[in-house]
């Protein structure tokens, strides 16, 4: 079934892919089991055989599969990325999500029928940048960094023929994706060069007399009293001190939720609504997909009458483990 707004869901494993498809995802996105994608975590992602099964399953149910190939290869490893593109074409994937212009050129020349999407890691925040990738590589879709206000997204959409995909739910990247080296500054590994941010192998937890401490490669990211919930030490969500004042200098441990924006997203003809979370469990993916499917269907049926049902908000709130939600940059005052 062709929807005007596609629900694009994360698949960190074959069971997660099936959960997404079974619960109404129009598209799923996945990565291979190496540093060619920006969720390069142990135990996650697909080998060739799993990817083949995943594509077959999704296609049998009318869903599309996108391959995330969104890190920047260096000269030494380039062949691995090219092979991943070849494999995506061979497996009949519906699109490849790329950030690196050199790879886009390879994909376009080698597999002219393969659809290309510009990854959020490509940092395109204006239509001139998006049109650059369109003119040179024929990209069909661009995933926008989580930094634009809704008014800015609308303005941008008028300047490009390229379809737009927006993040709707899940982790909130505070920085322009593809333009953040905080993780490699502390640990040596970043999204651009290794497909990881604040990598688990650099994390240390230690109970001290001053509280529970989380560190990234020795750098103290936060310290918690017994009454506080400790969160994963993502660098930009830590508490630090500026001129003696300790607070969340960049952002609180909060996540993105744009349910209430759905009618507006439909109005400006956003093509993809992306759910973050390839690192999440199949159960999580199933729940989030179900809620968003229902919400999108309701909204398409009756945009002016749309309102966020308390049950949806409650279900999404439950799986976000009591975290706060925000509209992020879509809501201008967040900036």
């Amino acid at each position: 079934m062709q929807h005007e707004l596609e629900l694009v869901c994360p698949a960190g494993s074959l069971p997660a892919l099936k959960a997404a498809v079974d619960n109404g995802a129009d598209c799923v996105y996945l990565g291979f089991r190496d540093d060619t994608n920006a969720r390069n975590f142990t135990g996650l992602n697909f080998d060739a055989a799993n990817a083949r099964s995943g594509v077959a399953y999704a296609h049998s149910k009318g869903a599309k599969v996108f391959l995330a190939l969104n890190t920047y290869p260096r000269a030494a490893g380039l062949e691995r990325w090219k092979k991943a593109i070849d494999l995506a074409a061979e497996l009949g994937m519906d699109a490849v999500i790329l950030a690196d212009p050199g790879l886009m050129q390879y994909a376009m020349k080698t597999h002219p029928l393969l659809h290309l999407h510009l990854s959020v890691q490509g940092s395109a925040t204006n239509y001139e940048a998006i049109n650059f990738y369109h003119e040179h590589f024929g990209i069909r879709r661009a995933v926008l960094p989580r930094v634009l206000s809704f008014a800015q997204v609308e303005e941008l959409s008028g300047g490009t023929p390229v379809e737009l995909e927006l993040f709707g739910f899940g982790g909130l990247c505070v920085m322009v994706e593809g333009r953040c080296s905080l993780s490699s500054y502390a640990t040596g590994e970043s999204p651009n060069n290794c497909g990881v941010c604040s990598p688990p192998k650099a994390v240390r937890w230690q109970q001290t007399s001053r509280g529970l401490e989380s560190r990234l490669n020795g750098v103290l990211i936060d310290r918690y009293t017994d009454k506080e919930n400790a969160g994963y030490p993502t660098l930009c969500k830590g508490r630090f001190a500026v001129e003696g004042e300790t607070y969340y200098v960049m952002e609180e441990p909060t996540s993105l939720n744009t349910l209430e924006l759905l009618p507006e997203l439909l109005r400006i003809k956003v093509r993809g609504l992306k759910i973050e979370g390839r690192q999440r469990s199949p159960a999580y993916v199933a729940q989030v997909t179900r809620v968003w499917r229902e919400a999108i269907d309701q909204c398409i049926k009756d945009p002016p009458g749309f309102s966020v049902r308390p049950a949806w908000a409650a279900e999404l709130g439950r799986i976000s483990e009591g975290q706060q939600h925000t509209l992020g940059a879509y809501h201008r005052p967040w900036k």
Binding site: Y72, P73, A75, D100, G102, Q105, Y106, H136, N192
Partner: peptide
């Protein structure tokens, strides 16, 4: 984000 010779050649 120029990380490899292909992208550098293109630019």
């Amino acid at each position: 984000n120029i990380y490899n010779p292909q992208t550098l050649s293109l630019i």
